[in-house]
Simulated scan of single mutants.
Amino acid sequence: MRRMLISGLLLLPSGLTGFAQTPPAIAQPAASPEWVSFLGPFPAVESDEGKADLAILLWHQRTRTPADIQRAASEVKLTLEAYATASGRSLNPTQFPKTAALIDKVGKDTKAVTDSLKKHFQRPRPYLTDGRVQPAIERETSPSYPSGHATRGVIFGIILGELAPERREALLVAGRQVGVDRVIGGVHYPSDIEAGQRLAFRLAAAWLADPQNRAAVDAVRVAEWSQPAKP
Results as ranks from 00 to 15, higher is better:
residue 84 A to H: 04
residue 213 N to H: 15
residue 215 A to V: 13
residue 10 L to E: 08
residue 210 D to R: 01
residue 118 K to H: 02
residue 6 I to S: 15
residue 11 L to Y: 12
residue 62 R to D: 08
residue 96 F to Q: 09
residue 10 L to H: 11
residue 64 R to A: 07
residue 53 D to W: 08
residue 181 D to A: 12
residue 129 T to W: 02
residue 52 A to C: 12
residue 77 K to C: 05
residue 35 W to C: 08
residue 57 L to I: 11
residue 125 R to H: 09
residue 110 T to V: 11
residue 202 R to A: 08
residue 34 E to K: 05
residue 178 V to I: 14
residue 64 R to E: 02
residue 159 I to Y: 02
residue 199 L to Q: 00
residue 127 Y to H: 05
residue 112 A to Y: 07
residue 28 Q to P: 10
residue 34 E to R: 12
residue 124 P to T: 11
residue 189 Y to S: 02
residue 215 A to M: 05
residue 221 R to E: 09
residue 136 A to K: 05
residue 192 D to S: 01
residue 135 P to R: 06
residue 165 P to E: 11
residue 47 S to R: 01
residue 177 Q to G: 06
residue 192 D to M: 03
residue 141 T to D: 13
residue 167 R to D: 00
residue 20 A to T: 14
residue 180 V to M: 13
residue 9 L to D: 06
residue 172 L to S: 09
residue 19 F to E: 09
residue 61 Q to K: 11
residue 184 I to W: 03
residue 212 Q to C: 06
residue 24 P to K: 08
residue 227 Q to E: 13
residue 9 L to Q: 06
residue 123 R to D: 05
residue 27 A to T: 15
residue 161 G to F: 02
residue 51 K to V: 14
residue 131 G to K: 14
residue 61 Q to N: 14
residue 25 A to R: 13
residue 98 K to V: 02
residue 99 T to Q: 00
residue 172 L to G: 10
residue 142 S to R: 10
residue 189 Y to V: 07
residue 75 E to D: 10
residue 30 A to D: 01
residue 168 R to F: 08
residue 112 A to N: 08
residue 49 E to N: 14
residue 158 I to L: 11
residue 22 T to H: 09
residue 6 I to V: 15
residue 92 N to W: 10
residue 217 V to M: 00
